[in-house]
Nucleic acid binder design. Structure first.
Lengths: 233, 233
DNA sequence: ATTCATTTATTTGCATGCATATATTCGCAC
DNA sequence: GTGCGAATATATGCATGCAAATAAATGAAT
């Protein structure tokens, strides 16, 4: 039951980073963190190494620093996510999915419709994550699934990465509607085994995030992920 | 000048794994390795964590084990490499490359021709790695470059991953010639800014590795990477 | 011989000491 | 005040001790 200490430290630090509590450029000192968290430096060190592997920290000759992303990198990461998720749905389409799997996707689409009418953003967010996870899983390729999940680590690249503060803007509302149209077409493409179309749609779907990033920066809205982006906000 | 110990251990262990010295499924005990390498367990531990992050080791509740790959995973990894390198050359094509960059690529193509006539496989191998590295770099996306490099870690997925023992077989010789045709067409597509074509060509180019894997297994040839593949050889 | 429980031997996860490398502070000249 | 070097303080990299967890070995029962 007692979680390993390096895992707790890992979760703790990771959430502090992606939530913007630890701004990009912050130096992370193992000894200091150890004292702060009441454990020794060893498990902290393991967590830091893992976070470096995830690309959230960079290590120079004297310690770890929270990575900061150039704006170009943020956009490139979004495209990477689209590419990988696109490849996943293409595979799903081309190998074909079962009736029950299709029914499940269609059920989610109806849920989306419902949430878009009356639900709040958090509800949409959760459903969206679940939907993308399901689509990726249908690829049947563990390698691809792992890489898609990995691509989510970059700021704004994950399916739940849109700034919640924009939730009432017209632009954001519209992008959700377009996104739902994408979702429907992607499921349709998979059902018809149109792999190329599914791929293209998913790439385009990811690109919606580009506008969200731009809007968040332009409006100087407080989105947690912005803490990791250089020269922004 | 004195390399950090955990780095030496990392390089050492990684090369032992990909060279097949450490077969898939082997358990790696930090204390034992420490004694063997004449250093303490701490730097060994760091190396093991990093190798887990690279996907070469898996960690269960009591230690690290050399990962073994299902045959499907090997083929999926090859496709992943093609996808990522394909995206890289597409970007290179669409943003355009300079004259000097084009000249450099064309110079490499001539080198390939020369090596294909008279050179040995090692020479080809080195040139191939360099060529793929150059192409990927022309994408101009650090994110993509890093992910391409990362995709090379899987057995048979890297550009230098073909079994050297096949070097004299007719089939292998033919695949080198087809590969060179791909190289030429990819450079041509980039030069003409035909991104979609470059992408498709690179995907197809990676697929040559599928046949190499199959041939290595069928012929029960000794390829080092086979040590990581389950139920093979 | 095979299964199972018990004992023994290793190994891991974490804490911590120490030497060296790095950062910080201080002092002094300008 | 600013720039530069020495002195001090702090953090890292590695080694190692120790308790708890895991693996290996032993042996009894079937």
């Amino acid at each position: 039951m007692s979680e390993l200490q390096w895992k707790s430290a890992l979760y703790d630090l990771r959430s502090q980073i992606v939530s913007g509590e630890l701004v990009g450029g912050t130096k992370l000192r193992a000894s200091h963190l150890a004292g702060e968290m009441g454990i020794s430096r060893t498990p902290i060190g393991e967590a830091l190494i893992k976070l470096e592997g995830e690309g959230l920290l960079v290590r120079d000759k004297s310690g770890f620093t929270v990575r900061s992303f150039a704006l170009d990198e943020v956009h490139d990461a979004i495209d990477l996510r689209g590419l990988l998720e696109g490849a996943a749905v293409q595979r799903a389409a081309e190998r074909g999915i079962s009736d029950v799997e299709l029914k499940q996707l269609q059920g989610m689409l109806l849920e989306f419709d419902r949430v878009l009418k009356g639900g709040d953003v958090a509800e949409y967010d959760q459903l969206n994550v679940e939907f993308h996870h399901t689509l990726t899983g249908l690829s049947g390729s563990d390698i691809l699934i792992a890489e898609v999940e990995r691509s989510y680590r970059f700021p704004f690249a994950g399916p739940s990465a849109f700034p919640t503060q924009q939730s009432d803007s017209d632009r954001f509302r519209a992008s959700l509607i377009v996104g739902q149209q994408h979702h429907q077409q992607i499921v349709s493409a998979i059902a018809k085994r149109e792999g190329g179309r599914a791929f293209a749609l998913m790439c385009e779907h990811a690109r919606l995030a580009h506008e969200n990033v731009r809007a968040a920066i332009e409006a100087r809205e407080h989105a947690p992920q912005l803490a990791l982006v250089r020269n922004a906000k």
